[in-house]
């Protein structure tokens, strides 16, 4: 970080030393800033800062919504967004292309979340060995498909149960189902389905092998669909399977 005198009375701090083109005065070793270049640089910075404020304001809801899906908790989500904006603001000079500010902000948000997540895991001494197969998890649960539960092949074109199910599905139902997933699975789904990350980007962000990302997504999706199915049964949107019918199998 360097500081140099600005017009008249102000001092302006700049984080990137490469930003100033310097003039050498014939070998004396004294380095003078180029006033024209400085002015352009300052204008550029002011524009970037204005753009930053506009972008933060435009993306605030989505930053918060994404953080909320990652953390499941509104206080934690607020902390992460505030920390993200703070970090981004202090590193604004590192952003080479202001047009890429949106992706950059979400990358900072994800990194902030992942650091906090790891810190909490190590503090709680929880080894989040998400890849260990839960002994209670049946092959049916690992491959659960909502579509297969709902689909009736003889119904075509209109009013299919799966379409009806999707129409009835509220955001609240999905949020609730997502929140039931263990962290590792939920985070993989949020990164890929909500944020559009590639598997490779998720692997790099979480520092796990690509196969782990695939497996978390596959199992996470099965868990999510199972949770939605169970919620739908609870809400009376779909009929429970026969073995859950209270009267079945009981003798009078």
């Amino acid at each position: 970080m360097i500081a140099w005198p600005m017009a008249h009375h102000m001092r302006f701090t700049i984080h990137s030393p490469g930003a100033v083109r310097r003039l050498h005065d014939g070998g004396s070793g004294v380095v003078m800033p180029d006033p024209h270049s400085d002015k352009q640089e300052i204008n550029r910075r002011q524009q970037t800062r204005r753009l930053f404020e506009q972008e933060v304001s435009r993306l605030m809801d989505r930053l918060y919504g994404t953080a909320l899906r990652l953390t499941r908790n509104s206080d934690d989500a607020e902390d992460i967004v505030a920390e993200t904006v703070s970090r981004a603001w202090t590193r604004l000079d590192q952003l080479r292309d202001p047009q890429r500010m949106e992706g950059w902000l979400f990358r900072i948000l994800n990194n902030t979340f992942v650091s906090e997540w790891r810190r909490q895991q190590s503090r709680r001494r929880i080894e989040a060995n998400a890849e260990d197969v839960d002994p209670a998890e049946s092959p049916e649960a690992a491959n659960f498909s909502l579509f297969q539960k709902l689909h009736q092949p003889f119904l075509l074109w209109w009013g299919t149960p799966e379409d009806q199910f999707l129409n009835e599905l509220l955001q609240e139902d999905l949020q609730k189902a997502l929140d039931t997933l263990p962290d590792a699975f939920r985070v993989a789904i949020v990164l890929v389905e909500v944020q559009g990350y590639t598997y490779d980007e998720v692997a790099r962000l979480l520092d796990v092998p690509l196969g782990t990302v695939r497996s978390r997504l596959s199992r996470g999706r099965a868990m999510l669909q199972k949770a939605l199915w169970e919620q739908a049964i609870e809400a009376g949107l779909v009929a429970p399977p026969p073995d859950r019918t209270p009267t079945e199998g009981k003798s009078p």
Partner: peptide, 28 residues
């Protein structure tokens, strides 16, 4: 079906940021 469900999952991040957060960001 999977495509539509996926789109609905993506929409779960469409949440309004609380006023409190907006004030906090302004302060930052």
């Amino acid at each position: 079906f999977e495509r539509k469900l996926r789109a609905k999952v993506a929409e779960t991040a469409n949440v309004s940021a609380p006023e409190r957060l907006q004030r906090r960001i302004k302060a930052v």
